[in-house]
Write a protein that binds this DNA or RNA. Structure first.
Lengths: 344, 344
DNA sequence: CTGTTAGCGCTTTCAG
DNA sequence: CTGAAAGCGCTAACAG
């Protein structure tokens, strides 16, 4: 393996100047190069296996063709949260779109304490995609860099940031209302511990909307919390079984939690949906890979990723500002029992 | 947002030269700087929010502090294969290790047709982690770049490449033998279409080893193929049900396939493990998130990722060559029925 | 201990 | 249409 060719080498090989070489290789439209010269240059480049260095280019045009993505990480292990399949599905779509647009993707996990704006500057990121909710100070740092940022699933109002989201509150309403339509009146709610903001809070609000609309009193004791993980929700099942207020249905704010909860309940001897009806949220592929398949609020995760990528890149290339809200709908599967038709 | 500070600005602000500034900021051990000067420099850097540009550094020391990871992509959509949770678990661990060692991670999907060696050169990647099996020409290109490469789960013997693998053949043996120990004599094998190389081929060999050892004749009709996906395996269940040779057990070469197959069978009215015993492979978290939980060959996926990252980085930093084989063992769960104790 | 200076590889005025 | 040369931000000889 010999030393890598530089543009100089190509120029020499082709018998022309560096300028000409650069022009040919970058297909500059404003200058016209004779076909003959162009051919020679291309041949030389080919022969020498010439690959331009992004680092040199980046220094000049301040463009790295790099998009950064921040994925939440688990508290304990500092690993990315790929045990929730949501993130994998999302990232796949982002990577694909980014690549097709001629960019590359830098993937990082990061805690709120770490300073992503340094990374962003150090790498001259062209754009940033952030999944999840982060403290404002953290985002302010990023804002100061001037790099376009897309916030996905964050409830932050700030004109600087582009956003792609869903109407989580409406989704919560949809889920709860579905249970109500199926005859349920005592409905529990399970989510991450509410922090006063974020998607689970919104889904909770939707839950209450549906309850209120149906004239059902909200009962605080029907609200349960667990981590957004399979095991935490699995364990919650035991608590639920003990403290249950006679609920016949439950809206669980994430499929991964719904699955853990359902299996936890079954481990306790319950049957789903016979003993309890469950509606999830996300329509992660897991939701249809289990038995019973989970009735859930569908969101198009891949589309979310594609849009996020499209928005940052558009912002980079022509400063377009965009905020997108993706649609939501219920997917009926087998985890809910219709109790309006109890007897025949 | 004002213009980003360069090292020059910091030097001016601190009232020293750029050299001194550079020395202080890089904590060079071979030169001694007075505490007073060092303090001034650091204060100035801080005040100006100075962040060094990697692109400039990369140009000089030919080190980008960037590790590239290649994840297989689905044939059709060109998306990364994150629907198999194996990849997410793996990548999480890689990202975490890489970050802790002061590097960043560039994630790409790539078809065999695309030329990763250009990307590698263009970005001055310090090291590359490749998951899965790729054609030799493809790898030869990479080899020519001189960049350290770790091959994960690839059966390619070439001293240039570092490797981290498991003994897939032994794993196949373990799985099959487990079924034999539980009294099964007619055992099917399900995997990706065998291509003459790769992990599924090896697992198949292990399957045959176990059969041979137990004096069980191999029956070609007991070998089935599907894509490494939930749905493909789900559909295979129907075929299996029709063509079944009276097998009482089956070794499925990947958990994601095992799960699809099991649920496919159940959709056809079968019970697992009553009607058929199933052993999977990988011990993906899904394997314990379903009912019945799947008895499977456990491999430490996170450790695989961690090792892969550790190996490339060690190779980058001190040229160490390493090949690692991670251990494997059976995790007993609920998808296998012991038929040695048929009656009591 | 600190400063001057020559590039790293590339793009891009500005002249021919 | 093509070439010479400046300079992006940084590091590392080499002097002082």
């Amino acid at each position: 393996m010999r030393k890598r060719a530089s543009i100089k080498d190509v120029a020499r090989e082709a018998g022309v100047s560096v300028t000409t070489t650069s022009y040919v290789l970058n297909r500059k439209s404003n200058v016209r190069i004779s076909d003959e010269t162009a051919r020679k240059v291309r041949e030389a480049a080919n022969k020498l296996n010439y690959v331009p260095r992004m680092s040199a280019r980046t220094m000049i045009n301040q463009k790295s063709q790099l998009i950064g993505a921040i994925i939440p990480q688990t508290g304990s292990s500092h690993r990315l949260m790929f045990d929730n399949p949501f993130y994998g599905e999302f990232l796949s779509a982002v990577e694909c779109e980014v690549r097709e647009r001629g960019y590359h993707l830098l993937v990082s996990g990061t805690g709120p304490n770490q300073d992503y704006s340094s990374i962003a500057q150090m790498r001259d990121l062209d754009g940033i995609i952030i999944l999840g909710t982060y403290p404002c100070e953290y985002l302010d740092e990023l804002k100061r860099t001037g790099i376009p940022v897309v916030l996905v699933d964050a409830y932050i109002r700030d004109h600087y940031f582009h956003t792609v989201s869903i109407d989580d509150r409406h989704g919560g309403y949809l889920a709860t209302n579905y249970l109500i339509e199926k005859g349920h009146r005592k409905i529990a709610f399970i989510a991450e511990k509410l922090r006063g903001y974020g998607i689970h809070e919104q889904r909770f609000l939707g839950y209450r909307d549906a309850l209120a609309e149906a004239g059902i009193d909200f009962d605080e004791r029907s609200v349960y919390a667990a981590d957004v993980s399979y095991y935490s929700s699995f364990q919650l099942a035991q608590v639920f079984k003990e403290k249950s207020q006679g609920e016949t249905g439950v809206f669980v704010a994430a499929d991964i939690m719904a699955l853990g909860f359902i299996n936890g309940l079954r481990a306790q001897g319950w049957s789903i949906p016979e003993d309890l009806s469950v509606v999830g949220f996300d329509d992660v592929f897991l939701a249809s890979m289990c038995l019973p398949e989970i009735t859930t609020v569908h969101q198009d995760i891949a589309e979310k990723g594609r849009q996020a990528a499209d928005i940052v890149i558009s912002a980079v290339e022509n400063g377009a500002k965009r905020d997108i809200i993706l649609p939501l709908y219920i997917v009926e599967r087998d985890s809910v029992r219709d109790i309006t038709v109890r007897e025949e």
